[in-house]
Amino acid sequence: MNPSLLFGALAFWVVAWGVNEYLVRLTPKSQTMARTISIAVPVLFGITLLVIWEGVTRGLNVSPILLPPPSMIWARITGSVPILWADFQQTFMKAVLIGYVMGCGAGFAVAIAVDRSPFLQRGLLPIGNFVSALPIIGVAPIMVMWFGFDWPSKAAVVVVMTFFPMLVNTVSGLAAASSMEKDLMRTYAAGYWQTLFKLRLPAAAPFIFNALKINSTLALIGAIVAEFFGTPIVGMGFRISTEVGRMNVDLVWAEIAVAAVAGTTFYGLIALLERAVTFWHPSVRSG
């Protein structure tokens, strides 16, 4: 029990809260100032969370098995870079990326393939929507049985998880171009493929990117959970489930931090790509 640490953290919280209240009430004149404030406020909030976490765990002497303080987790991250890097390579570079590309590619290809048949679309859309709500993660043990313990089985789970969101979003995106625009393409005597590439795919881009963003999260979850069902002795999901059993909770948190950074970066990269590709869309133009 160390009350000074505890009260220090609480005092920091109060001060940070006050500063944030002050910051959001400012009406800055320049745009750079406004942007700095809109970044500074959440950053300050995040730092406050870490300080409270550190202060409470150290101040109340919480057992590091229950909840290690952030400084201990950071020491663990810097101390076991080779392990974390190997796990990251196994899970992210192999299972997640390969499965993501294959699943999204397959969903996109099927959407294009059924594009000319309204009959198949009407049949596929409700089923695709239904399957998207199912706990698909449950196919993990089946995939492990079919494709073995190494990364192909995890990539297969990722493929199944990412396929349906991509299919559903692409099909509804391809229907997004208005009939006015399609008529214009007709007056240009544009063929099916020209209309597809010059009008309908660009118009579908916001939907496709929406699926890509949803899938970036699903892919990481799928790969990690699939590793709970059996893996070689490397991988983020494997490390999490075994180190929990050995009560090395700080390593688990380190692994989670890596997963969080990887997931956020993955999502951020796709969001950046989206801004570059769909620069014409109102939601991008205004912001």
Partner: peptide, 30 residues
């Protein structure tokens, strides 16, 4: 609350990108 909006919303959006299910075994065991 404007302060809550400004400070919480970015984190809520960011947390969507984190594989939360990965923490599941730890929560259970702890």
């Amino acid at each position: 609350s404007r302060a809550m909006d400004k400070s919480l919303m970015p984190w809520i959006v960011a947390s969507q990108t984190i594989p939360i299910l990965a923490i599941a075994p730890m929560i259970i065991v702890v």
